[in-house]
Design a protein around this nucleic acid. Structure first.
Length: 890
RNA sequence: GGGAGCAUAGCUCAGCUGGUUUAGAGCAUCUGCCUUACAAGCAGAGGGUCCGCGGUUCGAACCCGUGUGCUCCCA
């Protein structure tokens, strides 16, 4: 078969994914094996995979594939959530384009459009997950608006209501004026904004006759950021201890623009140092004002409509948008001479995470979850170590802080797309909560003795997170069909992988739900990935245009390279600065693997001797050095497999990948393959060939969870197979022989030292040399001397007791190498090199001697540490001696 | 304003219980190579006040204090 010069991923990736699917490798059903369960953090249906998802899904796939190849029954459940606000906005937009107004539709008709929209666009995210190579069980796709899932949410709501964990009430909540719905505290993002502080005069009522406007006695100055809310003012508040305003206690002032008299009140809350020390109180539009209002029994005047315009209650500027009204208010205040000054001011404003508009504090009647009761067990689950957070040191504190200070969760949303709240109200506003209308009626008549009452269901739906917090349970039907085989087998799941930004939204609430509805944790480990930023460290966002398109990247580099690139630059839990250069590195790695395969394939036809009979120790020409190479690599492989195992157990996936990368590129390609590579047109030892294929297999298997496509492809190209790498089980770990590893390290060091000497002395790669080794222990070189000869292009090798004159001399530990070549020896350069090394060694001995001559060190340090220092000293002194001898013989 | 974290090579980061650390890796850089697996490559090299200051210790990149700078979370 003709093999292309470089690896071409596109067709290969598609081929293998289809084959894996066809063979059902990703599907899981309960059996006698231990399960390894992961539920995907459901991306929302409106979205496409961004780089953050890509990182997340890749991490999950690595863990799942590794488990699948390690004897576990791996089950990775895919799905998406219905994203009520985002989806509803998209559907409304789509209807608008068709010329349909949402308000003209019935709820049922709207939902039908919404489901149609979901069917059409909701699948994009799944095709991207597949493109990336994710080994999810497609038979288990779950959507948070599936019938059973809908029922589960309703069931949980009713249950919680009956347990007193839910309540309905008027509170100040975060209001999204674009989506026209309430938001939870977590859905609000705070950002610093350059704003203005306006200093406005409030005239004092019944004061002295106003004769002179500059006379401060006639008015009080209030500083405000929001002059458009002046119409909702019900008081002006000062600190009771602020002497500047003592004379105003009990007085009244005129609210500008609407000329309404309101009292001056006092409260410790007011900071005399901020602004003018006088605060206007607008209970309807500020949370602190609201609380002060409650305390002082003040009226609440809501001057804004649900879409952020001035309402009738505002009296002026009616119908104007809040920001337009601000401009107009400022203009009018100026005209009336009531605006003293404007001041630049940096403030923090809340923005809706979904629509990005400034969130409006608003008093409204909503449903809330009492969080205190749920927080206890969720906190305990983590602090007791029952659930481990990785990296723990970083997020444990955040998690604890949130749970210890948790506020009630506003779960009602003024939307249609979502689970409609199962609460019914009669004409008197009495509440009945039940799973459906029939049950509600029955309950109602039982409770109040009235049948056929007018009952009206709550029009609102529940927060999307109120459904996704059930995810690890209900994807296995654990709420709607408790005790079923799947949920008993797969729950609790093993690990949840997600971004640190949704620790409260989701992780904490899922743990609450697990403890509350299943009396058991939802997962054993939580792995938080960092945020993906661009290479300048900026968050990726649509507005900056710095977020690359995943499919374009896969097209350009291949899915394996994308997975490699994102993992190699992703230290556990740290933010990762995404740079396409990392994908290039991945592509180059693909190519390296591809070419290594091509090299080995070339040997297939050119094997010396019969494949079966030949062994490594039969004295065949060239077998000696190769036997060493095989032995060494076998042990090196065992060693690295152990390291990778440990790294993966500690969720250090990036380091694990780096380790495998280096094992393949450096140890296998640069060292091992070069060591066993036959000369031009020469046959390869058949036993070595077989061993090399076996090593290659092991390397591919080790890499497979990270780069599934190319590894599967090469696995099948290396040899005729009946099995697939995807489900090949790892062999047990073998201990590595440290003596052989040390011999290999020495050989590598010798080769590098000699190559460096060649380089520095201007010897071309083609110039052959004669090599002499002076060593007290020359045996250590003999096992691998044929490799050494080949790797440094020596014509021959000899052992000597005496220095060899007119040669280039270099030292390695206590050993000396003499290189005889055609070139003239640059004595001066050699001398400098040796002197530099000696200088280093002498200073090293000095630093060691400092310790060894220190009585306190000898007394306090552990004996093995002292012994170690003695050895360091002896080694360095021996080396100095070697260098001195070399210098003399120059 | 409250809390958490970080600061090590040009860049991104390792460095576990203080002692083979006069500090490692990848990328980038430099030098030499078109050596028939791979120039998307090969061989080699250079590069550091471990943020500043003070302390504990026989011994500090590591522990403690303090200052500075950056990042994140919360109000």
């Amino acid at each position: 078969m003709e093999l292309s010069k470089n690896y071409t991923p596109a067709a290969i990736e598609d081929k293998w994914y289809q084959l894996w699917l066809k063979k059902g490798y990703f599907n899981s059903t309960p059996d006698e094996r231990t399960p390894f369960t992961v539920v995907i953090p459901p991306p929302n249906v409106t979205g496409v995979l961004h780089m953050g998802h890509t990182l997340n899904e890749t991490v999950q796939d690595i863990l799942v594939r590794k488990a699948r190849m390690s004897g576990y029954n791996a089950c990775w459940v895919p799905g998406s959530d219905h994203a009520s606000i985002a989806t509803e906005a998209k559907v409304v937009q789509m209807l608008k384009e068709k010329g349909i107004d949402k308000n003209s539709l019935s709820r049922e008709a709207f939902l039908q459009y919404a489901f149609e929209w979901k069917e059409k666009y909701g699948g994009i995210i799944y095709s991207q997950i597949a493109k990336l190579g994710c080994s999810v069980d497609w038979n288990r796709v779950t959507f948070t608006m599936d019938d059973h899932y809908y029922k589960a949410v309703i069931k949980v709501f009713v249950e919680m209501y009956n347990q007193g964990l839910l309540y309905r009430g008027a509170r100040m909540i975060n209001w999204d004026v674009q989506a026209k719905t309430a938001l939870s505290d977590e859905e609000v993002e705070y950002r610093d904004i350059e704003g203005k502080l306006y200093y406005v005069k409030y005239k004092i009522v019944d004061s002295y006759e106003i004769t002179d406007d500059s006379n401060a006695i006639n008015y009080i100055t209030v500083a405000t950021q929001r002059p458009e809310t002046i119409m909702g003012d019900v008081a002006v508040c000062v600190n009771p201890n602020d002497e500047r305003y003592t004379h105003l206690h009990g007085k009244k002032v005129m609210v500008p623009l609407i000329n309404k008299a309101v009292p001056v009140i006092t409260d410790e809350y007011v900071d005399p140092a901020f602004g003018t020390g006088a605060l206007k109180i607008t209970p309807a539009h500020d949370i602190h004002d609201y609380e002060i209002g409650l305390k002082h029994h003040l009226e609440v005047i809501d001057t804004l409509t649900e879409d952020g315009k001035i309402s009738e209650a505002g009296q002026v500027f009616i119908g104007l948008d809040r920001f337009e009204a601000r401009k107009r208010a400022v203009e009018q205040l100026k005209e009336e001479g009531l605006l003293i000054k404007e001041e630049e001011y940096t403030t923090r404003l809340g923005f809706s995470q979904r629509t990005n508009v400034v969130v409006e504090p608003r008093i409204s009647t909503q449903w809330f979850v009492r969080m205190k009761e749920l927080a206890g067990p969720a906190l305990e689950a983590v602090t007791s170590g029952n659930i481990a957070i990785h990296p723990g040191d970083k997020f444990l504190a955040t998690y604890k802080y949130w749970l210890e200070n948790v506020k009630d969760w506003c779960i009602s949303r003024q939307l249609w797309w979502g689970q409609q709240i199962p609460a019914w109200y009669d004409e008197n506003g009495r509440i009945i909560v039940a799973e459906n209308e029939a049950a509600a009626r029955e309950l109602y008549s039982g409770k109040y003795g009235v049948s056929n009452a007018q009952l009206r269901q709550d029009a609102d739906v529940l927060d999307t997170w109120f459904s996704s917090w059930l995810w690890p349970i209900e994807v296995f039907y654990g709420i709607t069909n408790p005790g079923n085989k799947d949920v008993e087998y797969y729950y609790p799941t093993n690990v949840l992988v997600t971004g640190q930004d949704i620790i409260f939204f989701w992780v904490a609430r899922m743990i609450m739900a697990g403890m509350q509805f299943k009396q058991e944790k939802p997962f054993s480990d939580v792995y938080f990935t960092g945020m993906v930023r661009d290479k300048l460290g900026r968050k990726m966002s649509k507005s900056l245009g710095n977020s690359p398109d995943l499919l374009v990247l896969i097209d350009k580099y291949g899915a394996d390279a994308v997975r490699f690139g994102i993992m190699i630059s992703s230290p556990a839990g740290n933010d990762l600065l995404f740079d396409e250069a990392a994908l290039e590195q991945g592509r180059n790695f693909n190519n390296k693997l591809w070419n290594a395969m091509k090299l080995v394939k070339m040997w297939e036809e050119k094997q010396a001797g019969s494949k079966k009979e030949q062994t490594l120790s039969n004295g065949e020409e060239g077998s000696g050095e190769s036997a060493f190479a095989v032995q060494w690599f076998e042990n090196r492989l065992s060693e690295v497999r152990g390291e990778v195992e440990d790294l993966m157990k500690g969720f250090k996936l990036s380091e694990a990948l780096k380790t495998i990368y280096s094992l393949i590129w450096d140890d296998f390609c640069s060292w091992y393959l070069e060591w066993v590579k036959p000369g031009f047109e020469q046959p390869v030892n058949a036993a070595i060939y077989q061993k090399t294929i076996a090593f290659f297999d092991d390397l591919l298997q080790l890499l497979h969870p990270f780069m599934p496509f190319i590894t599967e492809e090469i696995y099948h190209l290396l040899k005729e197979r009946t099995d697939d790498l995807c489900v090949k089980q790892f062999a047990p770990l073998q201990p590595a022989n440290t003596i052989i590893l040390a011999e290999g390290a020495l050989l590598k060091a010798a080769i590098t030292t000699l190559r460096d000497a060649r380089n520095k002395n201007g010897l071309k790669p083609k110039d052959a040399i004669q090599l002499y080794i002076q060593s007290e222990n020359s045996n250590q070189f003999k096992a691998s001397e044929h490799i050494l000869v080949k790797q440094v292009n020596a014509e021959g090798i000899a052992y000597t007791e005496e220095p060899v004159p007119n040669t280039i001399v270099v030292t390695l530990e206590k050993d000396k190498f003499f290189i005889a070549a055609e070139n003239k020896v640059d004595v001066e350069a050699l001398r400098n090199e040796l002197l530099k090394d000696m200088e280093y060694q002498k200073r090293f001995v000095e630093s060691v001697m400092k310790k060894l001559t220190n009585e306190k060190f000898l007394q306090n340090a552990k004996p093995e540490v002292v012994a170690l220092e003695r050895k360091k000293k002896m080694d360095a002194e021996a080396r100095i001696k070697t260098i001195e001898e070399s210098l003399i013989n120059l």
